[in-house]
């Protein structure tokens, strides 16, 4: 299959043909897993925007929406390059799914817009947590943040390893040869 240089780069970036994608079934599961993760990230992005608006970050609260929007636009672009119109396929969504999507969209607009409007009209956010970084933050917050990041990374690696061992035990138990 002849691909453009942009698509070759996309494939290389994603590692779609890398051995870590497993066999065809494993690749299918992996891609569905990431699809679920993308949708979850979008909802978390909406939630983050609302929370940031609630605590008074104003228009900066829209940043999470742009951040989670980038993967969505990338997916639309990638699919189009492979001959699939994701936007047109949305017309085939079930009525219940369409209703849920519109309810979520309007709900977000109401909550986010409401929080921003409150801040603008009242002069203070819904929840004023009064973050004051200041000019002389010093080494303390930087050091604390660094230590926290390392601890978090180690904890994530340990949790992933434990999850992998559990999955391997479950897979071994499933063998009914």
């Amino acid at each position: 299959m002849t691909r453009s240089s942009a698509m070759r780069a996309a494939y290389a970036l994603t590692g779609l043909n890398d051995p870590s994608m497993g066999d065809e079934r494993e690749r299918d599961v992996i891609l569905r897993s990431y699809s679920f993760a993308l949708v979850l990230a979008m909802f978390l992005g909406f939630l983050a925007s609302i929370l940031l608006a609630v605590v008074g970050l104003g228009l900066w609260s829209i940043v999470p929406i742009f951040v989670v929007g980038i993967p969505s636009w990338a997916a639309i672009w990638f699919a189009a390059k492979e001959g699939v119109d994701l936007v047109a396929l949305l017309d085939k969504a079930s009525k219940s799914r369409t209703r849920l999507m519109w309810a979520g969209t309007f709900g977000f607009i109401l909550l986010w817009g409401g929080a921003l409007s409150f801040h603008i009209l009242m002069g203070n956010p819904l929840v004023d947590i009064r973050i004051d970084i200041g000019d002389d933050a010093g080494l303390g917050p930087v050091l604390g943040g660094g230590i926290g990041a390392v601890v978090g990374l180690v904890a994530a690696i340990v949790a992933l390893k434990a999850r992998s061992r559990k999955t391997q035990r479950q897979l071994a138990a499933a063998d009914d040869d």
């Binding site: 497993g22 066999d23 065809e24 079934r25 494993e26 897979l171 499933a174 063998d175 040869d177």
Partner: peptide, 25 residues
Amino acid sequence: QAQLAQLAGVSRQTIISIERGDYAP
């Protein structure tokens, strides 16, 4: 299952899924 998986170039879990009808190859 492991032998067939190796011969077919897939994981044992994939052979299990196929035999159970959970995955259409």
